[in-house]
Simulated scan of single mutants.
Amino acid sequence: MRVTIEKDFGFEAAQQLPGFPEGHKCRRLHGHSFEVRIAVEGEVDPATHILYDHARISRAVEPLLVQLDHQLLNEIPGLENPTIESMAHWFWERLEPLLPGLSRISICETPRVRCHYHGPSASRTGP
């Protein structure tokens, strides 16, 4: 049986988006309550009836959240222009080696704005 497990995390951070045009409100220093959703996909182990121990996902993500929480994202290496697109990629690069079956990283900066990243092979149609 193939399943997808998703786990949500959150952090608070400030950012400026230097790639936006002069005068755009997102170029100014501002903050968000970010939500990060990590999805892993694979076959359920017939012996345990699980795909992943959820704590395994938490152990991989927590050190990254410590780096980001209550920080200015622009000061973190790799996030000099911290759009949600670049943040999703930043998370992927750090989690992919730790979480076999990683299938999607979603970053929400507001309840109505989010980015879903499926890894470097964006054109793939399935696992």
Score class of each variant (00 low, 15 high):
Met1His: 03
Arg2Met: 12
Val3Trp: 09
Thr4His: 00
Ile5Asp: 05
Glu6Trp: 01
Glu6Ala: 10
Lys7Ile: 09
Lys7Gly: 02
Gly10Asp: 09
Ala13Glu: 06
Ala13Leu: 13
Ala14His: 04
Gln16Ile: 11
Gln16Val: 13
Pro18Asp: 03
Gly19Tyr: 04
Gly19Ala: 12
Phe20Thr: 01
His24Gln: 07
His24Ile: 02
Lys25Gly: 03
Lys25Val: 06
Cys26Ala: 11
Cys26Pro: 00
Leu29Tyr: 11
His30Leu: 04
His32Ile: 05
His32Ser: 03
Ser33Gly: 12
Phe34Met: 14
Phe34Asp: 00
Glu35Cys: 10
Glu35Ser: 14
Glu35Thr: 15
Arg37Ser: 11
Arg37Thr: 12
Arg37His: 09
Arg37Gly: 06
Ile38Tyr: 04
Ala39Ser: 15
Ala39Arg: 08
Glu41Tyr: 05
Gly42Tyr: 12
Glu43Met: 09
Val44Ala: 08
Pro46His: 06
Ala47Tyr: 05
Ile50Arg: 14
Ala55Glu: 13
Arg56Pro: 00
Arg59Ala: 15
Val61Gly: 06
Glu62Gly: 06
Glu62Met: 12
Glu62Leu: 13
Leu64Ile: 08
Leu64Gly: 13
Leu65Asn: 05
Val66Ile: 15
Gln67Phe: 03
Gln67Glu: 15
Leu68Cys: 12
Leu68Arg: 01
Asp69Glu: 09
Asp69Ala: 11
Asp69Arg: 08
His70Asp: 02
His70Glu: 07
Leu73His: 07
Gly78Tyr: 07
Gly78Thr: 04
Leu79Pro: 03
Glu80Ala: 02
Glu80Gln: 13
Asn81Pro: 00
Asn81Thr: 01
Asn81Phe: 10
Pro82Val: 03
Ile84Asp: 01
Met87His: 09
Met87Val: 07
Ala88Tyr: 08
Ala88Leu: 09
Ala88Met: 09
His89Arg: 15
Trp92Leu: 13
Trp92Pro: 07
Arg94Asn: 09
Leu95Tyr: 08
Glu96Leu: 05
Glu96Trp: 02
Pro97Arg: 05
Gly101His: 00
Leu102Phe: 09
Leu102Val: 13
Ser103Gly: 04
Ile105Phe: 08
Ile107Glu: 01
Cys108Val: 03
Glu109Phe: 12
Pro111Cys: 05
Arg112His: 15
Val113Tyr: 13
Val113Ile: 14
Cys115Ile: 13
Cys115Asp: 04
His118Tyr: 15
Gly119Trp: 13
Pro120Phe: 14
Ser123Lys: 14
Arg124Cys: 03
Thr125His: 15
Gly126Glu: 15
Gly126Pro: 02
